[in-house]
């Protein structure tokens, strides 16, 4: 996030108010509904009302987390705490996490070395990167998604390949900017923070994300992390 110009700040505030307004509306409206007719709600409707509230809350907190995360990174206050991480286990955990849009999906196929792959890295940050990249792959495609893990000398490679809408070539340079959303996916809901967060987390891990995309064919995101131990 650039704080240098008023225009940028204006844009950020307008994005903030827009992103927060909808979940707040959902929360407010559903709470009113529960309050005014709790007794008359049939169980299915009541369950849905609570679920809508929870989802709205999750959306707000995730959004605030992302903003906070980007802010920390901009101030260079992001620190990694490396430790030995079993990558296969970490990926399994990501796929089992209930708070993601791809939870319970059978479209994601993991290809990783059969032997345990232990890599020294920050578990939380790596989880963030993989979750955000998988969310995008899942959201912007309807077909199978491949997640490939490989390791080289002091290097971890994770590749996420989808067969989705792709990124327009003239917009690929902007995709890591906070709040940036490509024209071809504006009808899908999103904050435009996912890739920004992923990139900042990857950078902190001493790594990088390279995006390779063809419009209407699909996108491959390649995450490459170098190990500190050399």
């Amino acid at each position: 996030m650039e704080y240098s110009s008023d225009q940028n700040i204006g844009q950020i505030i307008s994005s903030l108010s827009h992103e927060l307004r909808t979940p707040l509306t959902i929360l407010s409206s559903n709470l009113q509904l529960l309050k005014s007719s709790n007794q008359n709600l049939d169980p299915i409707l009541r369950a849905e009302t609570f679920q809508l509230c929870e989802e709205a809350l999750t959306a707000v907190s995730r959004f605030l987390d992302d903003i906070h995360f980007i802010n920390l990174s901009n101030k260079n206050e992001l620190k990694q705490t490396p430790q030995d991480v079993d990558i296969n286990q970490l990926i399994a955990k990501v796929l089992e996490s209930k708070n993601t849009c791809f939870y319970n999906s059978n479209r994601i196929h993991v290809f990783s070395p059969s032997e345990a792959l232990v890599f020294k890295t920050d578990e939380t940050l790596l989880t963030k990167v993989i979750t955000n990249l998988l969310s995008n792959a899942y959201k912007f495609s309807a077909k199978e998604i491949a997640l490939r893990v490989s390791n080289g000398a002091n290097q971890l490679n994770i590749e996420i390949q989808d067969q989705g809408v792709g990124i327009p070539a003239d917009q690929i340079e902007f995709i890591f900017m906070p709040f940036y959303r490509c024209e071809n996916v504006k009808m899908l809901s999103g904050t435009g923070l996912g890739l920004s967060v992923a990139q900042k987390a990857a950078n902190c891990l001493n790594g990088e994300i390279i995006i390779d995309s063809t419009l209407s064919k699909g996108t491959t995101a390649k995450l490459k992390i170098l190990s500190d131990e050399r």
Binding site: T22, I26, S29, N30, Q32, L33, L41, L52, A56, M187
Partner: peptide, 16 residues
């Protein structure tokens, strides 16, 4: 309404 969650919320409020 393109936000499905808000759409569902509105629907429930009106249905009730």
């Amino acid at each position: 309404e393109d936000d499905l969650a808000l759409g569902k919320t509105l629907r429930n409020v009106l249905k009730i």
